[in-house]
């Protein structure tokens, strides 16, 4: 059985179909990439899966149980957590406190005092020596690690990553990519990631789903997807699709 599944998931804003009848499935131990041009509905899809927005139609299932319609904070306790493209640390709390708040909501999936678990997660993401800093004192890459640590502290089963690699320098991007792989391999968390940085998403993902105008237009291994004519068209325009074929 798939771990997380969406069935005909849709979100309409007035006449705009931001997400239009999307079916996808995430298997345990997998990294699923979600790509698509700007405005394809990727972030809205995340908001629907994480409970930040109620869907207009369709449903989200976690291990076969319907979770759509539940608020974000309850989904966190059930093991579905998201990060944001624009990181939002609590500026008035220290790095350790930021992660401790999240560690309080592991929903019984983790043992030990929250503060200790928060420390462990901070070690894992490489912020072990910055526990007492305020988030404002971290670099952008550091704040992205903090965002990851906060999500991981909730001991998630499904982690939704919204453009973690975007915006940092290439060296940082490499280490963040290694970190995402370690999240799957060492912490056994299944990951869905939205990413604009193509090399990152193509090397990390086991499978890739392509969205365009709110619809799923392709799905498969990274190698399959890049050859898909509709994908090439969505990214490069019609003429290129013809040239490739």
């Amino acid at each position: 059985m798939s771990l997380l599944e969406t069935r005909a998931l849709s979100k309409h804003f007035g006449g705009l179909r931001a997400v239009d009848a999307v079916d996808l499935a995430l298997h345990p131990g997998e990294i699923l990439g979600v790509i698509g041009p700007n405005g394809a509905g990727k972030t809205t899809l995340f908001s629907l899966m994480a409970g930040s927005l109620p869907p207009s139609d369709g449903e989200v299932l976690l291990e076969g149980q319907r979770i759509s319609g539940q608020p974000a904070h309850r989904l966190v306790r059930r093991g579905v957590v998201r990060t944001h493209q624009i990181v939002r640390p609590f500026p008035n709390l220290s790095v350790l406190e930021n992660v401790t708040v999240a560690a309080l909501h592991a929903g019984g999936r983790a043992e030990g005092p929250p503060r200790e678990r928060a420390r462990e997660v901070l070690e894992f993401v490489g912020l072990g020596d910055r526990t007492h800093a305020v988030p404002g004192a971290l670099t952008l890459a550091g704040r992205k690690r903090l965002e990851l640590a906060r999500a991981l502290a909730t001991a998630p089963r499904v982690l939704l990553l919204d453009e973690v690699v975007a915006g940092v320098n290439p060296a940082e991007a490499m280490t963040l990519a290694a970190l995402i792989r370690a999240i799957r391999d060492r912490r056994h968390v299944a990951v869905i990631m939205i990413e604009h940085v193509m090399p990152a998403v193509m090397s990390l993902s086991d499978r890739v789903v392509v969205l365009d105008h709110g619809k799923k237009i392709a799905e498969g291994t990274p190698a399959e997807v890049v050859k898909h004519p509709q994908v090439i068209e969505a990214y490069l325009g019609k003429g290129h699709a013809g040239a490739q074929a």
Binding site: A50, S52, P71, A72, H73, V76, R77, V81, R82, H84, R88, P89, F90, P91, N92, L93, V101, A102, L104, H105, G107, R150, A151, A153, T154
Partner: peptide
């Protein structure tokens, strides 16, 4: 600090 971010970590 941030109601939405708090909800995103389970508060």
């Amino acid at each position: 600090a941030d109601v939405d971010a708090a909800a995103d970590v389970g508060v």
